[in-house]
Structures are given as structure tokens and as C-alpha cells.
Design a binder for these strands. Structure first.
Ligand SMILES: [Mn+2]
Ligand SMILES: [Mn+2]
Ligand SMILES: [Zn+2]
Ligand SMILES: [Zn+2]
Lengths: 135, 135
DNA sequence: CAATAACTTAGAACGGTTCTAAGGTTCTTG
DNA sequence: CAAGAACCTTAGAACCGTTCTAAGTTATTG
């Protein structure tokens, strides 16, 4: 059993961020284990449960820094709050509207054909597919 | 040339809403002419330009009532603000991230194949495709 | 025309997010 | 390793889009 305790110090430094106690604690919650979809509030609650004191302001700062560094992507599916997604590869989402849950599905299962060409003078940035479902 | 001045009084009453001065003014801005994508603020600015006094609270109330009546759909593409769409049929969106513009494209041009089945115990509500572009 | 129900509104409140500014931590350099 | 510099964290205020409250107004009904 090797390699089950990634060195977040390294990846933080690679992102140009000092590996502070708070950022390492947040990185652990976010990146050890499988892909996650968190809100600032939910991440704050989780990291506090590890008994590492982190303010909500730091959670927001860190989420934004991780996003800017390409470690996270932001997902906007409902008014009023953002989700942050540790899966930065190509994929799409189920959004369970009745309880606010987000689930991934791989983009290679789905085929999107016949997308019109972007408006004059614009270049494609990303295609998001959101499959909204209810319980 | 007939029928170029729709009777919003009728459609408002059909939606269970009294055709007040404010709602008729808002309906005119929204529904005469082609499809629109507005924010509360942008609609408020437009309706005020017609010299009909309407408060921002009424704009919000009316947008929500029109949405509940099925006259509008809400589109969430960016954090912090909602768009309201007069096109309630099946279609998808270009979102020009650099300037906040939304444009429709028909959903029958695009083919989405191989969508995974929704999670256990959920039923499909809608599929949104957002093509994000930048200038 | 009342009488009533529905509506509009200013301003307060709210909730998620960002900002400010002061103290603390991490890094660099010698 | 000490000290300075750079960077980071934080409480609380501010911000901004949206909703709520409560008081006055308007539309509808008979
Ligand atoms: Mn930011
Ligand atoms: Mn509402
Ligand atoms: Zn995801
Ligand atoms: Zn549209």
C-alpha cells in the first residue's frame, strides 16, 4: 500500500500557493477520495469536522484560488449558489433539483452532434450538458 | 396588417393575473417582438424607458408570476443572477461569457445520443445544453 | 358605486459572496 | 537559525441580487 497519502504540499506549491495548514486541510477534504461536488458552506462544515479551524472567508478564497489554478471547476446550476467540482476533465452533470445533488456522467457516453457554429467573433469555451431530474 | 397588437389583457387573465398597468407594460416589453432573454435589472430599465413607472419589486414579482404561469423560463448560466427567457419551447443556449449575452439555438438542430439513465428514483425534468463562448 | 380581493411599492431583510484591515504564518536570505 | 519580507487568515463589514413586509392603491364584482 503506497501512494495513498498524496503530498498536497507539492501540488499547492505547483499552483503557486503556499501550503498553509488551512489550504492543506481543504485540499485533503477535496482531493483525497473520489470526485466531489461541494458548496462553500458544505466544504466549510466538512473541514471544521476535521477539527482544523478554517474561516468561511478562507474557504471562499481557497475555492477561488483552486479554480483559478485549474484544480477545480465551478458549476452553476441553480440560482444563488455555486458548486465546485473536483472533476476538471470533460464530463457532464445530473442535477437533482429536488435536493440540490450533482452527479457526474462521462462525456464520452454522450454524443452531441449538430451544434451550430458560435456567433461571429466568438470562440468556443466549453459545452455544458445539465440533465435536470426530480425525485 | 392585423394582429400586430396582441391583447395582453387576455393572456394575463388566462394566467390568473389581473391585467394591471404594470403587468401589461412588462408583458409588452417581453412579448411583442421576438424572443428575449432579460434580467430583472435589464427589464426594469427597459420598462422605465417606456415611462410607465414600475418598481423593481414588481419586476421581480411579475417575472416570478410569469414563470410560474409558464410564460417564461428561468435560465441560470452564471453565478449571482438569473435570466428570464420568453422562449418556452425546446431550445438551447449560447452564452457569451465575456459580455453576459444569451442566444438561442433550436434543439432540433442538435442531437444528443447516449444520455445515461437518471439516478434511481428520479425522473427527467429537462436537458439543458449551454455552449459557452468568449469574444 | 361600495366592498372586497388583488396588486404595487419603498424600504428592510436576507443569503451567498467579496472586501477590508489587522494580526499571524511561511518563506527567503544571510 | 534569526530577521525581514511576502503571503495568508480572519472577523466583521460591505455588497449585490433577490425576497419580504406592511401600508397605500387599483381592479373587479355586484
Ligand atoms: Mn473570484
Ligand atoms: Mn419565487
Ligand atoms: Zn462534475
Ligand atoms: Zn432561450
Amino acid at each position: 500500500m503506497t501512494g495513498n497519502s498524496p503530498d498536497f504540499t507539492v501540488s499547492l506549491r505547483a499552483a503557486g500557493l503556499r501550503p498553509t495548514r488551512q489550504r492543506v486541510a481543504l485540499a485533503r477534504v477535496l482531493f483525497e477520495g473520489g470526485h466531489r461536488h461541494v458548496t462553500a458552506e458544505s466544504l466549510h462544515a466538512e473541514v471544521k469536522a476535521t477539527r482544523m479551524p478554517v474561516s468561511l472567508a478562507t474557504v471562499y478564497n481557497t475555492l477561488n484560488q483552486f479554480r483559478e489554478a485549474g484544480l477545480l471547476r465551478e458549476v452553476v446550476v441553480a440560482p444563488g449558489r455555486s458548486y465546485f467540482d473536483t472533476n476538471t476533465g470533460h464530463h457532464h452533470h445530473f442535477f437533482v433539483e429536488t435536493d440540490g445533488e450533482l452527479h457526474d456522467f462521462p462525456s464520452d457516453e454522450v454524443t452531441i452532434a449538430g451544434l451550430p457554429t458560435p456567433p461571429e467573433g466568438t470562440k468556443l469555451s466549453r459545452v455544458d450538458v445539465i440533465v435536470r431530474v426530480r425525485r
